[in-house]
Amino acid sequence: MINEKKLEAALKDAIDKTRKNIARFNGKFPHVSENEVYQLNDNTDWTNGFWSGMLWLSYELTRDTSFREAAVRTVESFRERLESQTVLDHHDIGFLYSLSAKAQWIIEGDESAKSLALSAADVLMKRWRPRSMLIQAWGPEGHEENGGRIIIDCLMNLPLLFWATKHTGDVRYAEIAVHQAEKSRRFLVRGDDSSYHTFYFDQESGEPLCGGTEQGYSDGSTWSRGQAWGIYGFALLYHFTRDKRYQETSIRMAKHFLERLPEDGVVYWDFSVPFTSDTKRDSSASSITICGIHELLKGLSNGHPDRCVLEEGIRRQLEGLIEKYATIGKPDAEGLLERGAYSVRGNASPDDYMIWGDYFYMEALARLTAGHKGYWYEL
């Protein structure tokens, strides 16, 4: 694996930049950057939980109360957002509340934070469509284009539902999570272990229609960040269900991803795009995959035939991020990782900082230096 001192130095750099960003962001939430300056919002986007997660990680790793104070303020902002139902009509509720309110519950046992996270799980449950048996990703119920649409990102929102079953005793949360997981495994993952970004179903019958994409190169391509969500999402599903099919799916998707790593260990934004010197990378996809593979390895024996290739995949990607993509040596940089890609096809921050890339990079460093596991579940 990577030299421990190098990992610790990278983590210290990430924490130092996060500390500086508390004042820079001044109570607002970073999203993506333009020209290396983060766009900020008043907690209205799907990405806002990642900043909260970075603050909680920094607090746990340092016990510096300035991080806790800033993190608690984000949780209060998420409480206000839920009470006012501000831009919550989508499936990314787990991204928002697992890394904010649920994180506070995991760290401090705060009952108010627990209650907030459970209320967020109820909001996510409203996305369930009983006729088509799916959690609708985007748009209002009955929407002509999106009414029967799932996306692979949703796998990372399902841990909130399993957690809600654990703390309420209501099995319906977990049952719906399993329905969504199984639909995703069957229809989003292709036979060659690549993945669709999205899949469409008939809203009335639930009949499968076709795969597609929103951010990938084409409907039949493999968007690398979508593949990363699948790797991590199915690894987490194995933790909750102990269903070997999810573990096997995560392994297959991880090997497909690792087989397509460029020489420097950090993937292009889509595996099917023509590769030239100008092709965009997505450092955030690699940071997500590192965390997903690390989680996956927890369930594999030392003698598992894929263990060595998976461990080598972590090493290659994290070494590439630290040495070529991290802003180490740039103390005034707002972001932790350069060359993230929000939407290349839509020309929206196609080559800049991404707050989720920064979060998963920090989680990866915390996993390998401190045995952290993120805030997706509690022991």
Rank of each mutant, 00 (worst) to 15 (best):
E60W: 07
E323Y: 02
E312S: 13
S77R: 11
T44V: 10
L318C: 10
G226K: 04
A10G: 09
T279I: 06
G230D: 05
S33Y: 05
I328A: 11
L88I: 08
I251G: 07
V309G: 06
G340R: 02
T62F: 13
E259M: 01
E248S: 09
D282V: 07
A181D: 05
H179N: 07
H304F: 05
E295P: 03
A164H: 05
E80H: 12
M362V: 12
A370Y: 09
A117V: 02
F29V: 08
T213P: 02
T44I: 11
Y173M: 09
L134K: 09
A333Q: 12
T279V: 06
R345G: 10
R281Y: 10
P130G: 13
C154Y: 01
M354F: 14
T276S: 14
I22M: 12
I135N: 10
E312N: 14
R19D: 12
Y375W: 15
W269R: 04
R19H: 14
E182K: 12
E34W: 12
V267N: 03
Y200H: 03
M362S: 10
E111A: 14
G357F: 09
P331C: 06
R186A: 06
S205M: 00
S132V: 02
G265V: 02
D243A: 09
L88F: 08
T47K: 12
P208E: 01
E4R: 15
T65N: 14
K324H: 15
P140K: 12
V32D: 06
S132E: 10
D219V: 02
S33F: 07
G27C: 11
Y361L: 13
F187V: 01
Y196G: 00
A120Y: 06
A10T: 08
T47H: 07
K12H: 14
T198I: 14
G49M: 08
S115Y: 03
S132H: 05
E204F: 00
E204Q: 03
R316C: 04
G292I: 02
A174F: 06
G191E: 12
D92H: 10
R260N: 04
E175P: 01
Y353F: 15
L57N: 12
Q136M: 15
V273T: 10
S205Q: 01
N347V: 10
A113K: 08
L236G: 05
R63K: 15
D192A: 00
F187E: 00
L365T: 11
T65M: 11
